[in-house]
Structure formats: C-alpha cells, structure tokens
Design a protein around this nucleic acid. Structure first.
Lengths: 145, 145
DNA sequence: TAGGGCCTTCGAGTGCGCTCGAAGCAAGGG
DNA sequence: CCCTTGCTTCGAGCGCACTCGAAGGCCCTA
C-alpha cells in the first residue's frame, strides 16, 4: 500500500435528509421509499437516534441512478439484483459491468426503435400538413400562388 | 377535379390474411387482435362469407403503425382516440396532426432521457473497466508498465 | 400536553394491457 | 364424418410497480 486515503477524517458533519425531504426531492412517495428499502433496492440507510431515516448524499445519488435505470424500463427485480451486487462488494465488478452492458444494449435498441418511430411520425405529420394545405384550396380549381 | 385516381379498378383480388396469420406476423395473439377490434383500435376488418376476419394489407400496415405507437408508450386510450379520428375522416386532419405532434414531443423527450441514461451507463461501465484493470495489479505495489 | 412527523407491520387496492378459458356453434377440407 | 379454425359472449386472472390505509407506538418541540 502506497497511499492512505481511506476514512474521510473527523471533518464536516455531512448533510442528511428526512424521508419527506427525499420524497420531495425525488418525486417518490415516502411509502415508495420505504418499499424500495424493503425489497432490497437501497444499500442501507442511516437512522437517527430515534430510528428515523437519515438519507445522505450518496443515497440521493443512488436514487437518482435508480431513476435512470427505471427510465430504461429495467424491471425492478433486475435493479434489486444490481443493488445486491453492489452490497457484495468489489468482487462483483465483472458481473455488474456485464449487467450494465446488457442494459446499455437494450437502451440503445430502444433508442433506435424510438428514432424509427420518430421518422414515421415526421412522415405522417408531414402528410397531414400537405393534405390540409391542399384542402385549403377548396373543391375548385386552384387559384394562383 | 383534374385527375381521376380514385377507385382501384376491378383488377387483382387483393391478398388477405386470417387472424392466425396476422397473429403470426405481428406477434399479437388472436385474442389480442379481437380485443383491439372490440375496443375500437381497428378501422373495420372485412369478413369472409362465413364471418371470419379477412385482414388486408392496409390492416397489417395499421397494426404496424399501432406497434410504433405502442413502443412510444402511448396509452391505449390515446391510440383509440386517434383511431376514432381516422374513422371520422378528413375533417379531423388538424386534430390528428396535433395529436401526433404531441406524441412526437414526448418521444423526443424520451429519447433525450434515454441518451442521458446512456451517458451514465457509459461512464459507469468505464469505471468498472478501470477498477478491474487496477485490481488486476494485485494488492502490492505495481510493477512497471 | 398537544401536535406533527416518523416508525412498524399487514394487507388490500389500483391501473394498465393484456391473457386465458369456457361454452357453444358454424364453415370448409381431407 | 371429423377435425381444424374460427366465431361469439362473458367474465375472471395476471404481472408489474406501486399506492394507500389503518393501527398502534415513539420522539421532539412549541
């Protein structure tokens, strides 16, 4: 070992957030946040002396990341799997990488699909515009312009 | 009226498809195809003398289009709305155009979201690759290279 | 001492988009 | 003649991701 950069030192007490603050910030309900924990989506959240949740910045970041995964359409079960791997530590790097790469493939495919659809929409919207412009001439022979 | 290109003439009897063929082709089940019809997603499908569905090419094209809409995540109710407008004829061009433009906005937003996520995935996958490469040096002081 | 915010457990409900099954019947082909 | 394919109607079931409510309890602060 060459350097010693572990343990952040006794410095600045890190900010923390109550469940309702996090709900506010993420758009998830308190109910859902507890549910996430129950099903194993959260890598352990601190508690106050009284047993209330005290979310840290890393928790918020994790939730944000989960949000990203959700927007990919990844099933919750898979997110749980990933969260498990994270809890298991560095030994699971390879597996996690594999998982994310798979997800990335899916997302790319999905993007391609959507772009395809965009092309169709563009086309159809174009046709409507044309049709309406023609209709504007009325049923008669067109005048100039 | 200048040209006369309406009515396809008494030529070639158009190909048609049974429900199971369409199911095969689209990946939808026969059950679902009938359901689409029931809820008003299909603009009338022909029947044989015996009352069996005879899908035409335009029906297949319509189903393909519906598939596109589905991949956008558009709720079925909205697709039904669009189908209604189509049935109502040319008078609804403006409304249909509006609907598709709205959808296009949504799809574009979704694509942006996904590309955002892709960036995150790329980043994370990159980190894993780096971490593993470093781990490969073992716990000791690194040799050369 | 009252109120608010949070805790737990439990279990039911919701919305969506199918999905399936059953019953009973008709047409068409080998 | 039978088998396959399809038809109808009806209604229940499913998987997912929440979502909600109730009951009963703890701590803090105004």
């Amino acid at each position: 070992m060459t350097v010693m950069e572990t343990s952040p030192g006794p410095a600045a007490a890190e900010r923390h957030y109550t469940i309702s603050e996090v709900a506010e910030a993420t758009g998830l309900s308190a109910h859902t946040l507890r549910w996430y924990e129950r099903i194993g989506l959260m890598p352990h959240v601190d508690r106050s002396g009284a047993g209330q949740r005290r979310y840290r910045d890393r928790d918020l970041r994790w939730l944000t990341f989960l949000g990203k995964l959700r927007t990919t359409g990844m099933p919750v079960a898979d997110m749980v799997r990933y969260a498990e791997l994270v809890r298991e530590g560095d030994a699971t790097f390879a597996e996690r990488q594999r998982l994310l790469e798979e997800t990335r493939r899916d997302v790319r495919a999905r993007v391609a699909e959507l772009q395809d659809t965009l092309a169709v929409l563009d086309h159809k919207i174009g046709s409507y515009a044309v049709a309406r412009r023609e209709a504007a001439y009325g049923a008669d022979v067109a005048s100039g312009s």
